[in-house]
Simulated assay, not measured.
Amino acid sequence: MLTESFLDYLRFERNYSDKTIVEYGRDIAQFRNFLQEGGSEEFVPADVTAEMIREWIISLMDGGCAASSVNRKLSSLRSFYKYLLKRGEVAKDPLRKITGPKKKKPLPAFVKENEMDRLLDETDFGEGFVGCRDRLIIETFYATGVRLSELIGLNDGDVDMSSSQLKVTGKRNKQRLIPFGDELKQTMLEYVNIRNEQTPRTSDAFFVKEDGGRLYKSLVYNIVKRNLSKVVTQKKRGPHVLRHTFATTMLNHEAELGAVKELLGHSSLATTEIYTHTTFEELKKVYKQAHPRA
């Protein structure tokens, strides 16, 4: 039988592992069973059409099979038909124009508003320069949505207190202006006063270490992770989570999608749209908790 000769080819000529060969055989057998359940008396590879394969994909997805598993099964079938073409057993490959299902992208992790309120309003960040700086770092990420590299790259000249805006240099050296509110402005003024009193001016950086040097990524990452751990238990607790939190909060409060795109510095609206899925998922949770017939 063709299936057995294909599996022998994998074992003796391609040196595939026994486990892989078993999986290939199982996938092909599953496809053969699907065709027979649909009315085919026997499995004739040359008679298989692209439509049959698409129907199989749909049945797998309807049965709860993950996109990654479906694509693996399709890979087994593709290898089988390449082998049959090479041997002249079939004249064409029915999978030539078949595209597998796309993997579902995980939704971006974010912190809920009440958790951010608890962190900024009730948490003790410590006294002096370090405590003031660490609080400002958290507040800046949350209030502006800047990237980690953008925050580290801020210089004093990029922070315009009179106009309440940041000049940020993002990916591909593209610059954008981000407004900020009075609360963040007040924290910034307090930080600058303490910084200028307690640290030497060894760089133009806005955010600095105790020796006056510019911050580095791992230091900021640990500052954010340590402080977010005080209010959340989720696995992801880095600076990018606060960027996600900014975007999600803005959309939850009815900000226009295009405006959020510009604030985040996204080149495509499609990148920003993933946050609409996040807000909808949160909306579904609220609905299920609140509606008596949910």
Rank of each mutant, 00 (worst) to 15 (best):
E41L: 14
E89P: 04
E55V: 08
V220M: 01
I194E: 11
T187K: 13
E13H: 06
Q186W: 04
I53C: 11
A46E: 12
N15K: 14
R147C: 05
V260S: 01
F12Y: 12
V260W: 02
L120Y: 03
I152Q: 03
S163I: 11
V241K: 02
I194P: 09
E51M: 09
L177V: 13
Q36S: 06
V159D: 02
P292D: 08
V232N: 03
K105Q: 11
I223A: 14
S5C: 05
D204G: 06
L215C: 07
I137T: 03
A270E: 05
G63N: 06
G212S: 05
M250K: 02
R243S: 04
F280M: 15
D134A: 11
R237W: 11
L35E: 08
K225N: 13
L189H: 02
L10H: 03
L60Q: 02
T49G: 03
E89Y: 14
V146S: 05
F129L: 12
E254Q: 15
R118H: 15
G258R: 12
I57E: 03
E55C: 13
F129V: 09
A270D: 04
M52G: 05
Y142I: 10
K19S: 10
K261L: 00
H240M: 02
Y287Q: 01
K185E: 08
R176H: 01
K103Q: 07
S69H: 04
L107G: 09
D156P: 10
L120F: 11
K235E: 12
G157A: 05
N71C: 09
G212P: 11
L136T: 15
S79I: 12
T278E: 15
I58V: 12
R11D: 09
R243G: 03
A290K: 14
A109I: 06
Q186I: 08
G213P: 02
V90P: 01
G145V: 00
S267F: 08
F34P: 13
G265D: 01
R118K: 14
S162D: 15
P179I: 02
V90N: 04
Y216E: 13
P101M: 12
S75G: 07
V146Q: 06
F34T: 04
P101K: 05
L189W: 00
A259T: 05
P239T: 01
R54Y: 10
I223P: 14
R14C: 14
K209I: 06
A91I: 00
S218Q: 11
E262T: 01
D211G: 02
T248W: 06
M61D: 06
T279M: 07
K92R: 13
D18W: 00
L148S: 01
G181C: 08
K105F: 09
P239R: 01
S68V: 11
L7C: 09
E113V: 08
E139R: 09
V220A: 02
F141V: 03
V208Y: 03
F180I: 01
D121K: 15
V241A: 10
Q165R: 14
K97A: 13
L269Y: 10
A143H: 10
D204C: 08
Y191N: 15
R54C: 10
E89V: 14
C132F: 10
S218Y: 13
R135Y: 14
L269F: 11
A143Q: 08
V48Q: 02
D160C: 03
S218N: 10
L60T: 07
L7F: 04
